[in-house]
């Protein structure tokens, strides 16, 4: 049951994250959308681990942790870049305004 709930939540997060990543212009929003997306995937992974039976499968857990670390690093990099960009241009939108 929890597994299904995890799974559904994860799927919803993935959807929201994808939407945000595609539609939003502001770099920070995109970064947040990416994190949502990532979290959704990790939740799904958790659900998968849960399905393996009582106690769960340890391998996915290890993977989720690794994934979170990676996502953290990516977010940090993203934020650094956004800050840099904002300092250079005064805006935090990586797309050229004329499109």
């Amino acid at each position: 049951m929890t597994a299904t709930l995890y799974g559904l939540t994860g799927a919803a997060l993935v959807g929201i994250g994808l939407y945000g990543l595609i539609v939003r212009r502001h770099a920070l929003r995109r970064l947040l959308a990416f994190n949502l997306l990532g979290s959704g995937v990790f939740l799904l992974f958790g659900a998968v681990a849960e399905r393996a039976g009582p106690g769960g499968d340890p391998v996915p857990h290890a993977m989720i942790i690794t994934g979170i670390v990676v996502a953290l690093a990516a977010t940090a990099l993203g934020v650094a870049l956004v800050l840099h960009l904002a300092r250079e241009t005064g805006r935090a939108e990586p797309d050229p305004p004329e499109g």
Binding site: L18, L21, A27, R30, L31, F34, L37, A74, L77, G78, L81, V82, H84, L85, E88, T89, P94, D95, P96
Partner: peptide, 13 residues
Amino acid sequence: LAAALRYLFFALA
């Protein structure tokens, strides 16, 4: 920087 950010987002996606 803008190019790198686009690169980053796309790669992350």
